[in-house]
Write a protein that binds this DNA or RNA. Structure first.
Lengths: 229, 229
DNA sequence: CCCGATTATATCGTATACAATTTAAGCAGA
DNA sequence: TCTGCTTAAATTGTATACGATATAATCGGG
């Protein structure tokens, strides 16, 4: 049996990623505990864990809020992903195992299935299989600290996925990138893998930049968040 | 007044960094609570926070242990530092403020003072001013996520400082690197700053590799840790 | 003498109660 | 009406108690 702390952690995390707990929203321990049927203790654990991952911010004697990122911070996160995932692909190219390559192909198949899901693309499916794809590569890179540094940066795309507009061109481009990444890794070419991965993320940024509408441009202050409640 | 959780966190962290709590040592909540005069609750908070920073590892229903890194992981950490701090220096070159440059000079002065402390170099002083030096640069880079990714990687040199042999050549080389880093940042030259910083860390690794003696080469398992108690 | 089952111990996981703190509201005075 | 102080509410911080779990020790059977 999994502990209550663990379940509380996943429940709150999912709620944030789903957007049910929106950016800036206060998360009183009592309230969460009531919703989940736990006491405050495991909820406390969960919130502090989420805090260390950056999903919530905690002020002493005040409590937790869902983190709200400014446009500038979104760009900082993307810059980090470019560097870190590029490096991960580079390492993975010489280290990836056949089993991991298989896994990569499976995630890619799932991704394509979600893309061509009818009548409309399956957004959740796309986001999840895409995350698994990237995570497999980072795992294959075999650097624990690299993985720990990247993981929190993936929260962003998940939080944003509901806003994401997946145009036909964008999906087609991603498809090509995924194929090329697999090719580079299969060929054991570090530099190729690195550059394709960087291209992949940079291109996604370009699409997001074009469509990003009402993300708070900078002054995402606490008081603004209050007003939204 | 700071909270008990906060104080417990700092107390345990300091004990680990000082080596009083050695790698692999178990840290029962009761014991720490007793030593510090708190109850288990704030100690729990502290241990989980340290866990998220990687300084301790927690197994469910078993408790916390001081993390013990294998030789391979030490190399992984250094590889990460090279990439991240190089990038930080690159960013800082175009963003650093005069105030931050002043701060950098002060830390460098403190470092030189610690080096030429008589009769012997002040190891703690060297480690601390060196850390401040690096941290100032990362702060100047102005990327919050970059800072969060690097911070845990600095635990390693602090834990290891007691083993470090600071030869005359090594200190002299570090001195030159620090000066050149400051010069590159002052000149606003991103690429220069990046490369010197990378050189600085790579060179340190070379010295460590030469002298690293009895670090557990790989299989730093829990059972081995037990045997050492 | 060795091995498996059982008990014992240590430690954590969770709930609850109360103290401390912050935030918000209400109220008196200018 | 506005400002400043006092009071009230909400929320967290901490201690403690008890139940759950894993590890270690013990004991009986082979």
């Amino acid at each position: 049996m999994t502990t209550s702390s663990e379940r509380a952690y996943h429940a709150v995390k999912e709620a944030i990623l789903d957007g049910r707990y929106g950016g800036g929203m206060r998360l009183p321990e009592d309230m969460i505990a009531g919703e989940l049927g736990f006491s405050r203790t495991p909820v406390r654990d969960a919130l502090r864990r989420l805090n260390s991952e950056g999903l919530v911010e905690i002020a002493p004697n005040f409590g937790a809020r869902v983190t709200q990122w400014s446009q500038m911070q979104l760009e900082e996160m993307t810059a980090m992903r470019i560097m870190l995932e590029g490096y991960a692909a580079q390492l993975a190219a010489t280290k990836i195992t056949p089993a991991e390559l298989d896994e990569l192909l499976r995630h890619n198949d799932a991704w394509e299935a979600a893309v061509s899901s009818s009548p409309k693309p399956d957004i959740d499916g796309i986001a999840n299989s895409n995350l698994s794809f990237h995570r497999t590569i980072v795992t294959a890179a075999g650097n624990k600290f690299l993985a720990q540094a990247i993981e929190p940066l993936w929260h962003l795309p998940l939080v944003m996925k509901k806003y994401a507009m997946f145009s036909r061109e964008r999906l087609e481009l991603s498809r090509q990138h995924h194929s090329e990444i697999i090719a580079a890794l299969s060929a054991g070419e570090p530099q190729w893998a690195c550059e394709v991965m960087r291209t992949h993320i940079v291109a996604a940024r370009a699409f997001d930049a074009k469509l990003a509408p009402d993300v708070p441009s900078d002054g995402a202050t606490w008081s603004e968040a209050d007003a939204a409640e």
